[in-house]
């Protein structure tokens, strides 16, 4: 129904939504979004299909038979299964995530302590976070993976490449996560500190029972974000000769001159990261709607 203009006298202000913005609530909006989605996907698919090298690229990256063979592997031809390699990625990121959560928290707490005894550690942790956030992960992987065995330190130098890879990833990601924790600690209101000290809690107890529980709650979404990066970066351990999903795909590609294995590996990574990104977004939205409860 057309909006009635009968009641609006000559002096009444104009309050209706402008015509070009009238998607509003109903059918309109749904059709608009369906149409635009179809046309965007259509253009991309068309480009892939019709490009001069389109056919070759499709065969190279999307061949179903190659993809399947790469996925299940073939021991008789020395092909490692990508799925098996992917298990390596999974256990690595689980181990690293746990280590990073602990180590990052330690660094953040040391960095924010005010105890004079901890001054050297405080300086060290500041240098640490600056340093390892500035170096590409792959260089840290090389440094640890080739450096530690080379140092000839007995037990330390006799670990498997997987252990060195975990150490390198933990070192790098702890620097990022420490900064996330630090932001969280800073986000806790000062009056909470004052209230805790006012009932006679020591600094350590204040941190442990009042500040950290609130800080960690505040930084769960950014922490998950860093974990998504960490999951993907486990692919870099292939540079140390570890046969993860990427390396298995690489071996398949170089022996069969077909890259479908890379597509398989990509899909496996997406399978892992997409639930995590969705969860992160949900948490961020929930947080946001809490804060914006009074703004429509």
């Amino acid at each position: 129904m057309a909006p009635s203009t009968q009641n609006s006298g000559p002096g009444a202000p104009h309050l209706f939504v402008a015509r070009h913005r009238r998607f509003g609530s109903s059918q309109h909006a749904r059709w608009a979004s369906i149409a635009s989605t179809i046309s965007v996907i259509g253009v991309l698919a068309f480009a892939l299909w019709m490009a001069p090298g389109g056919k070759a690229v499709r065969e190279f990256f999307l061949s179903p038979s190659h993809a399947w063979r790469a996925f299940i592997g073939d021991p008789s031809e020395g092909l490692s299964a990508i799925w098996r390699g992917f298990l390596t990625n999974i256990w690595m990121f689980i181990v690293c995530e746990i280590l990073v959560l602990i180590f990052g928290l330690l660094i953040a707490v040391v960095r924010m302590s005010s105890s004079p005894i901890l001054t050297p550690l405080r300086i060290l942790s500041t240098v640490y976070t600056d340093f390892f956030r500035g170096i590409p992960v792959i260089l840290v992987l090389f440094a640890v993976g080739y450096g530690m065995p080379g140092m000839d330190l007995g037990w330390i130098s006799q670990q498997s490449p997987a252990v060195y890879a975990c150490i390198a990833l933990t070192i790098t990601y702890s620097a990022y996560v420490a900064e996330v924790y630090r932001a969280g600690i800073n986000s806790v209101a000062t009056n909470q500190l004052v209230a805790a000290r006012a009932i006679g809690l020591r600094q350590g107890a204040t941190m442990r029972y009042v500040v950290l529980p609130q800080a960690i709650r505040n930084v769960i979404p950014p922490l998950l974000n860093d974990f998504i990066s960490l999951q993907k970066d486990t692919a870099l351990v292939s540079t140390l000769g570890i046969v993860d999903a990427t390396q298995a795909a690489h071996i398949y590609g170089s022996l069969n001159f077909n890259f479908a294995g890379y597509t398989v590996a990509s899909l496996l990574f997406l399978l892992l990261t997409i639930p995590m990104t969705r969860l992160t977004d949900r948490l961020i939205d929930r947080d946001r709607s809490k804060r914006l409860a009074f703004v429509s």
């Binding site: 009056n191 209230a195 006012a198 009932i199 006679g200 009042v210 609130q214």
Partner: peptide
């Protein structure tokens, strides 16, 4: 502070 309690205008309970 364990002997001298204080209560604030803004409550400052631990949420």
């Amino acid at each position: 502070r364990r002997h001298i309690g204080i209560v604030f205008q803004a409550f400052n309970l631990f949420p």
